[in-house]
Every structure is written in C-alpha cells, then in structure tokens.
Design a protein around this nucleic acid. Structure first.
Lengths: 201, 201
DNA sequence: ACTATTCTAGAATATTATTCTAGAATATAA
DNA sequence: TTATATTCTAGAATAATATTCTAGAATAGT
C-alpha cells in the first residue's frame, strides 16, 4: 500500500474554509477578499460557507476567536507549570513568542486585523476571550505582589509591561519589516519584562 | 455681531469626509461602513468622495496615513527638544501618550484597524510612514549606545521596549476595557522604558 | 425504516462599491 | 475681461459581490 497523501480524517468543510480564508485575508485583507474566491479555494459551496459562518465577517471572527483562544490556552498551560513571579513572567513571554512562531499566519492575521468591532454575538465572544486573557495574567501575578516578589502596580499594567514589547516586535516581524524571529530575542524580552515588574526584594 | 458658529474657512469636502468616515469606521468598522452613508453624513456627493479618495479603502488609508504622520511629527518634535538618552526615552513615552489623548478617535481607528494590507500606492505611503517612525527612534538612540548611556541592544529592539507597553495599554484604554487614561500612568511607563534600555553607567 | 437535523448546492436577489457623463466652480493665461 | 484648462461636484447607471432562499443529500437519533 503506497503512502496515503490524504489524512485518515479528511478536513471538514469548515476547516478548509478557515484555512482558505486565512490565506486570502492575509494576502489582500478582509475587505478585498471575496467569499466566492474563498469558497472556490476551499472547494466548498457558498451555501455551506454561510451555513457554518453566517457571513464573511463571521469567518474572520472565527479565525480571531480560535487564534486568541489557542494562544490563551497555551499561556494558561505554561503558567500552570511554573512557580513564582520571575518564572511566571519568563514563561509568559516565551509562551507568546513560541505561539507566534508556531502559528505565523494566524498570528499575522490577529495582529494585523484587530478590526473586530464588537458585532453582536461574535463580538461578545471576542470580548470574552480578550477579557480572559487579561484576567489570567492579572490573576497569576497579583498573588506575588504581597510577598514583595513583584513591584506593586495597578493590576492592568502587568500585561502591557510584560508582553507589550513582544507584541510590538512581533508586529514588525510578521509584517516582514524585520527578519530576526522573536525567539532569537526571547531572553532579552524576558529579562526586560522581569526588570519592569520585579519587586525590591 | 453674535458669535459665529461656522469657522471663517469652512471645512472642505475632503475634511468633512475624513471626519465622517472616522466616526462611522470607529462605530461599525470599515467593512460594514457604507460610502453612501458617509457621504450623507459629510454632505458630500459620491462623485466628490471618489474624486478625492478613489475608494472606501482610500478613505481609510488617508486616515491612517494622516494619523500616523501626525503622531510621528509630534514625536520628532519632542525628541528634538531634548538632550540625552534618558530625556529622549521619557519624551518619547510622553509624546505618544499625549498624542493618544489629544486624538482619541484617530488613535482608536489606528490601533483597531491596522488591516492595512499593502495596497498599491497608499500601501507604499503607509509603509514609508511606518518605516520613518522606526527609523526616527533608532536614529535618536543609536548615538547614545557608544557613550554607555544606553544598553547595547539590536537597534530594532529599542522601539518595542520603550513604547510597546504604552501601545498595549492604549489599545485596552481606547477599546474601553480600562478607564484610567494613559496619562495617569505616564511616569510609570516612562520609568519602565528607561529601566529597560538604560546602560550600566 | 422513519424522522429530524445538519449540511451542501448554486441560482436568484439585494446590497453597495465604483464608474461614468455632464455640468459647475475655480484657477490660469492672453 | 474673455478664453481655456483644471479641479470639483452631482447622482444616475453599472458592476461587483455579499447574502438569502429553496431544494435536496447526508447523517444522526429512535
């Protein structure tokens, strides 16, 4: 029996659509992208596409929600594995960097098209995912403020201080303006993040 | 003579269009926004709109380019006023924060819709503006590396370290997720930025 | 096997971005 | 001033394309 090129479980229509949409959206933007073209690439009928995602924006929203959720999931996982403020900070930085390099197309889409105006249902979902992200970070770190391991700061400042530089760098990297991947700067960004939030002790 | 409500130089069609577009884009996103609606709000004909901006995307691009350019201009101005690495870092942080609070709608638009896929002419312009931004920051700081005032880092890391946290915080602020304006955190962000890039001396 | 539900299909429709033609306003030259 | 060119305004006509709709196929549940 020769090698089987097609996977045992062939991709569902929805998955093919998401994949095709990601490609086209990244190439020409959500606006310019045509549903018909995406359906053609995914080999899925218009009817199916609308059945699954409701609209072109629904497709974009799904990509956004999936991507952010996956990123959050990995971050939560990494934070669970470590103990202490410094280890947490470093794990957060590296988790995000790793996710970006494991999912460059999705990362590019997310960073480049935050156009997500809170539309109805999906808008809510998106806000939720977003809120979870910040909450997770704040939750993890607030316990270390008492012990003095962390500098006492307004809760909503930890995430920007720890991950803001990585996000900025990633944007530039994903848009092709720099070629050195963030993983090459991981320790530098981790050091900076820790320096920004560590306590006096 | 009573107070004159209308300015001596009435707003041009192009200006009215930009203003209306900004409002609508922020409310419902570039995708959902209708040119006809924008024209109605701006009291400008379809023909004029297309004469001035070529397309809906052209309108969005113009807002983006105008906004980024203005931000850059102010940043350059502030950097010119100061001497030394620390003063530069602090000026950069505060300039960006100030711009955001002076131009909240424009800032929201820029932060929320980076969807700027490099489209032809305007895409080039946008890339240029963006490149100028990073170049300005790198130029300013590279001279201070020799003297030891600044930590020696890859040039493309200064901007993310100095401004990344502010950008992250601004996004959250402009989307309404936090209410404390960045200006209230200006010193904190400036301290963190300086700590991240200052040299050993 | 029957029924309900989910999914696929693509033609028909509706929406809306863009083009086009003509004319008004404004600048430039003689 | 008059003539001429250019820029700007107008909105109806057109073209592109997102979305709806109806019908039927596949699948799951009983």
């Amino acid at each position: 029996m020769p090698h089987e090129a097609t996977p045992a479980t062939p991709e569902s229509s929805a998955d093919r659509l998401l994949k095709a949409a990601l490609r086209v959206f990244n190439e020409i933007g959500v606006n310019a992208a045509s549903i018909h073209e995406i359906c053609r690439l995914a080999d899925v009928s218009i009817g199916s596409a609308y059945h699954h995602f409701g609209s072109k924006q629904g497709l974009a929203d799904a990509l956004l929600v999936n991507g952010l959720s996956d990123n959050n999931r990995r971050l939560a996982e990494q934070l669970r594995r470590v103990q202490g403020a410094e280890a947490g900070v470093r794990a957060a930085v590296k988790s995000v960097i790793r996710w970006i390099e494991d999912n460059p197309e999705l990362a590019q889409f997310i960073y480049m098209t935050a156009d997500s105006k809170a539309r109805d249902s999906t808008g809510k979902l998106l806000q939720q995912v977003n809120a979870d992200y910040w909450a997770m970070i704040e939750d993890y770190f607030k316990s270390y403020v008492h012990s003095g391991e962390l500098r006492r700061l307004p809760l909503e400042c930890y995430a920007p201080l720890i991950l803001g530089p990585v996000h900025d760098y990633a944007r530039k990297y994903l848009s092709g303006q720099i070629t050195v991947p963030p993983s090459k700067r991981a320790d530098m960004f981790a050091d900076a993040a820790w320096l920004a939030v560590k306590g006096n002790g």
